[in-house]
Computed example of a mutant assay.
Amino acid sequence: MNPVTRLRENPRRAAIAVGYAFVVLVASVVPTPPGSLTPMGPLGLVGLDKWVHAVGYAGLGFTVGAAVRARGRKEVVRAVVVVAAFGTGIELVQAVLPYRSFGVADVGANLLGAVVGGALWVAVAWVAEPRR
């Protein structure tokens, strides 16, 4: 069954995914106070903003996976690619906003988050699957 058909069969899940994507979009284009997310994040590896990107896109990857009820590897990869493309598109929009900026590291954090969210969806779907 194709993903669009699955979205039509699960309008509530689709609405949750679209709503979450809208929240991510709005949060990505509104002005932020200068220096609000520049401190180092957990583990001191990258800035807090990269963690916010990764966590936000993990949630989006999970909700999109759930909306299309991704089961197989190809379906999960498609969901992750859609979420990563959405994140890249938002970064391109930010490039033209005077109060935001484009960042390759942000794109990477979005992709990593989408992959983690897709993997979480697979784990939840596997656990919730009835055993025969």
Rank of each mutant, 00 (worst) to 15 (best):
R6W: 02
T63Y: 11
M1Q: 07
A66H: 10
G61R: 02
G61S: 11
V4R: 12
T38V: 12
A17C: 10
G44K: 11
R6D: 02
A54T: 09
I16K: 00
S36D: 12
A21V: 02
V23G: 04
Y20W: 10
P3R: 09
G19V: 01
V52G: 10
L25G: 06
A15R: 10
P31L: 08
H53T: 04
P31M: 03
P42R: 14
V18Q: 04
Y57C: 01
L43Q: 05
A21F: 05
S28R: 01
L48S: 10
A67G: 12
R6I: 04
V4G: 01
R8P: 05
L37F: 12
Y20K: 01
L45A: 14
V24E: 00
P31V: 03
H53V: 06
V64I: 15
T5A: 14
P31W: 04
V18Y: 08
L25M: 10
P42K: 13
G35L: 05
S36N: 09
G44C: 10
A27M: 15
V18S: 11
T5C: 07
R8G: 13
T38M: 09
T5H: 11
S28I: 01
T38Y: 09
V46E: 09
R13K: 13
F62P: 00
V26W: 11
L25V: 02
N2I: 08
T5V: 12
I16Y: 02
G59W: 00
V24N: 01
A15Q: 04
R13P: 00
R6H: 06
N2L: 09
F22L: 14
L48G: 03
N10S: 13
V46M: 12
G41Q: 04
A58G: 08
G65V: 08
G59Q: 01
T32R: 14
L45W: 14
V52W: 09
R6T: 11
P39W: 04
G56Y: 00
F22R: 00
G59V: 04
H53E: 03
P31K: 07
T63V: 15
V23Q: 02
R13V: 03
L43F: 15
R13H: 08
A66C: 12
P42S: 15
F22D: 00
A67M: 12
G59Y: 03
G61C: 08
G56A: 12
P11T: 04
A58N: 06
P34L: 07
M40Y: 08
G35K: 01
V46S: 07
V64E: 11
T63L: 08
V64A: 13
V24G: 01
V24Q: 02
K50N: 07
T32M: 15
I16D: 00
G41K: 03
R12V: 14
G41A: 07
P33A: 15
G19I: 01
A54Q: 03
V29W: 01
V64D: 06
H53L: 09
R13I: 01
F22T: 13
T32V: 15
R8M: 14
W51A: 09
G35D: 05
G47L: 01
E9L: 12
P11K: 05
L25Q: 01
H53Y: 08
G35F: 02
P3M: 11
G47I: 07
P11W: 07
R12L: 14
P42L: 15
M1L: 10
G19D: 06
G44N: 09
P11H: 06
G59D: 00
P34K: 09
K50S: 06
P42W: 15
A66N: 11
N10T: 08
